[in-house]
Amino acid sequence: MNLFKTSTLVLCLGLSACSQFQSQDASTPGAAQADSGKHSWWPFGGTDKADAKAPAEAPKPAVANANAAADKSAGNHWWWPFGGSAAGESAKVEAADKPVPVPSAADNKAWLDQHEAPVRAAVAGSKFKVERRDNALVLTAPVDGSFNPKRPELLLPVTLAPLASVAKVIEKEPQSGVFILGHSDSSGDKATNDKVSQQRAVAIAAIFRLSGLGNDRLRYKGVGSDKPVADNKTKAGRAKNRRVEVMLTPRGNLLPLAQAN
């Protein structure tokens, strides 16, 4: 009998406590929601599991800001190959833009002496011409016979083998770089000339890119008709001006070449 009375008393006390909690939730929903973050009202304790299951607040996306910064960086480096507006590309540009010592005249000569013969052998029998300058071996590709006449961004198959051979010579040495200048004649308007010269530079840069040259070793630029080597008033002169110059050089010369052109 005493056991029955005791059980009844415990049950009544429990029902009374539950009723009190329900009354508080119904009368002050705002307070309940505020307190729910602390779980101070929970009658049976143990909120660790509930906290573990609660989703963490999602971080605010920073993609827009990152892309804006990357676009700004890419805009400043208009000569940089393959561009990019992602934060990752911006990081690559910054890494590749770290100062690299400019080679001395003696270092340039040593590099040229080492690479001139292999480069000439790589393009032997093709339309490509090789010129040795103070700080670079300049490989000149005439547009006529090298590019599709109807698609200026497409190389003809005959040009792929010599370019791939040159890329093999350069890719083996991390301190070697390539700077590419695309040119046009003056027969079109400036916007068209700039565009087509850029497309030609990109087409040849892609061959070196596929050979493994990264952003720190490869740069390109289209200069339109700004740097003619012959008279644009004649057909022969215009043909000479339509060209792509591939400058093979020690990596430390890339930035000076880009700034000078």
Rank of each mutant, 00 (worst) to 15 (best):
M1R: 02
L3F: 06
K5R: 11
S7F: 06
L9K: 05
C18Q: 06
C18P: 00
F21M: 06
Q22F: 07
S23P: 00
Q24A: 09
D25E: 08
A26L: 11
A26K: 07
S27E: 10
P29W: 04
A32Q: 12
S36F: 12
H39T: 01
W42G: 04
F44T: 13
G45D: 08
G46P: 01
G46E: 08
D48Y: 00
D48N: 04
K49V: 10
D51H: 02
D51A: 02
A52L: 08
P55F: 00
A56L: 07
E57T: 10
E57K: 06
K60T: 13
V63Y: 13
V63M: 14
A64V: 15
N65M: 11
N65S: 15
A66P: 06
A66H: 13
A68R: 12
A69E: 15
A69N: 15
A74N: 13
G75V: 04
W78K: 15
W79Y: 15
W79F: 14
G84W: 01
S85Q: 13
A86K: 15
A87W: 12
A91Q: 14
E94A: 14
A96F: 11
V102R: 11
N108G: 03
K109G: 03
K109D: 13
A110I: 02
W111Q: 01
D113P: 05
Q114Y: 02
P118F: 04
A124H: 08
G125D: 11
F128L: 15
K129D: 12
K129I: 11
E131L: 12
N135Q: 13
L139T: 09
T140I: 13
A141Y: 09
P142Q: 05
S146F: 05
P149D: 07
R151D: 14
R151H: 14
L154P: 08
L155Q: 09
L155I: 01
P157L: 00
T159H: 04
T159L: 10
L160W: 05
P162C: 06
L163Q: 09
L163W: 06
A164S: 12
A164E: 13
V166Q: 05
A167R: 02
V169G: 04
V169M: 07
I170P: 01
I170E: 00
E171H: 12
G177H: 01
G177K: 01
V178F: 01
I180H: 06
I180Q: 04
K190R: 12
K190M: 13
D194H: 08
Q199D: 14
V202E: 12
V202G: 03
A203E: 06
A205F: 02
F208E: 01
F208T: 03
L213E: 03
L213I: 05
N215Q: 13
K221G: 03
G222A: 10
G224D: 02
G224P: 05
G224A: 05
S225Y: 03
P228A: 02
V229F: 03
A230K: 00
N232Y: 06
K233N: 14
K233C: 03
R238L: 03
N241Q: 00
L248V: 00
G252D: 09
G252Q: 08
G252V: 08
G252H: 07
L254I: 15
P256K: 11
L257M: 15
L257K: 07
Q259M: 12
